[in-house]
Amino acid sequence: MPRTSDAGGATRRAGVLGHPIEHSLSPVLHRAAYRAMGLDWEYDAHDVTEESLPAFIDGLSGEWAGLSLTMPLKVAALPLVDFVEPMAKLVGAINTLLVQPVADGRQLVGANTDVHGIVAALHEGGVQEADAGVVVGGGATATSALAALGRLGVTRPIVVVRSRARAGALVRAATKMGVEPRFVSFEDAPHYLSRASAVVSTVPADAGAGLAQALGGSGGTLSADAVLLDAVYAPLDTPLGAAWEQAGGTFVRGTRMLLHQAGEQVRLMTGREAPLEPMSEALDQALQSR
């Protein structure tokens, strides 16, 4: 396939910002997409802190198509854009910044593709709709998970947190979304996990290990229709995921969320559907080499 640039002939640029950023797999995914689409675009990782973010964004030239953002920049970038898309406004975080040309210069648009990524990953696991759902964790990714479960029909999700006081942003977002979360402790979580059709864990693997132990010790058997998406992907197979599969449920790795949220970013930045298959193959190869 011949490679193309933008209408003006200049190579377009995009990239991922964060601190630290060396671990990011976004360059692997986006570059694979550009190769498959025949686009002569650049995509690099940039080490950017909250303090240096305003200057970086202010320096974006017309060759830039957009940025991927990691935490804590997903929140820090909100006041720096001209327009925030409705879902991102609800969630209170943007993981995508689009640079759009307008008559008098440019417009910066904030979007959130994490919600799309979670929904698409759960679809892969077989969840098309759900009435009982659980979110483990209370941070920014948990808020996106809450929105994703809402899209699937869960209006009264269970949220597993160690401290409700630290989940203020999630509570505010839930109110805007029209969902009514019930907060429970990690100790009580196995009871609700065993009854949910869709679970999204957003906590680190070691934090989920305690839940895995409790789930394994409960002696319960899950239906194959019970789907767990573990949003972390280091390690690929988490203790909670292993316990979930051992109990009979369906486990979806966090890399599937990563793939789909990146694919939606590619679509937003290029205006074309993302080539998910070559992106997935490149991701698998990168993970195998680590």
Score class of each variant (00 low, 15 high):
Met279Cys: 06
Leu39Ile: 04
Glu245His: 14
Arg151Thr: 04
Ala274Tyr: 13
Thr155Glu: 13
Trp64Glu: 06
Glu264Thr: 04
Val200Ala: 00
Ala167Pro: 07
Leu25Asp: 15
Thr113Pro: 00
Tyr34Met: 05
Ala103Trp: 05
Gln261Thr: 13
Pro54Met: 01
Leu222Trp: 04
Val81Leu: 13
Phe186Thr: 11
Gly139Thr: 01
Gly8Ala: 15
Ser52Phe: 02
Pro157Tyr: 10
Glu51Phe: 07
Met177Ser: 04
Met279Ile: 12
Ile57Ser: 07
Val252Leu: 14
Gly150Trp: 03
Glu85Phe: 10
Leu29Cys: 09
Gln246Cys: 09
Ser52Trp: 00
Arg164His: 03
Ala212Arg: 14
Ala209Phe: 00
His19Ala: 12
Pro239Ala: 10
Ala196Glu: 08
His46Leu: 02
Val28Arg: 02
Glu277Tyr: 13
Ala165Arg: 14
Asp82Arg: 00
Ala212Gln: 10
Ala36Trp: 11
Leu228Ser: 01
Val75Arg: 09
Val109His: 08
Tyr233Val: 05
Gly139Ile: 05
Pro278Cys: 14
Gln128Ala: 14
Val160Pro: 15
Gly220Ile: 04
Ser201His: 15
Tyr43Gln: 10
Thr96Tyr: 05
Gln107Asn: 04
Val159Pro: 15
Ala111Asp: 13
Gly249Cys: 01
Leu98Lys: 09
Pro101Ile: 00
Gln265Arg: 07
Arg256His: 08
His116Glu: 04
Trp64Ile: 01
Gly126Glu: 10
Val227Asn: 09
Ala88Trp: 15
Val75Lys: 15
Arg156Cys: 07
Pro2Ser: 02
Tyr34Val: 00
Ser185Phe: 15
Ala169Phe: 07
Ala209His: 08
Leu29Thr: 10
Pro79Cys: 05
Pro235Gln: 13
Ala189Pro: 14
Val161Arg: 15
Leu60Gly: 07
Phe186Met: 11
Ala207Gln: 11
Val48Asp: 08
Asp40Lys: 11
Val28Phe: 06
Leu108Ile: 07
Ala242Ser: 07
Gly153Tyr: 11
Ala14Trp: 11
Ala286Lys: 04
Ser280Ile: 03
Leu276Arg: 00
Ser61Val: 01
Pro239Phe: 08
Pro86Thr: 05
Arg31Ile: 01
Gly248Glu: 10
Ala167Ile: 03
Gly105Leu: 07
Val232Leu: 10
Gly210Ala: 03
Gly62Glu: 12
Thr238Ser: 03
Pro86Asn: 13
Gly92Val: 06
Gly271Phe: 08
Val109Ser: 02
Tyr233Ser: 03
Arg162Cys: 13
Ala214Tyr: 08
Leu240Arg: 14
Val135Phe: 05
Arg256Glu: 08
Ala142Trp: 06
Val135Asn: 05
Met279Lys: 05
Arg272Thr: 10
Ala167Gly: 09
Gly133Lys: 08
Phe183Ser: 05
Asp284Gly: 00
Met1Val: 08
Val102Ser: 06
Gly248Asp: 10
Arg272His: 15
Met1Leu: 11
Arg172Lys: 15
Thr96Pro: 03
Val91Thr: 13
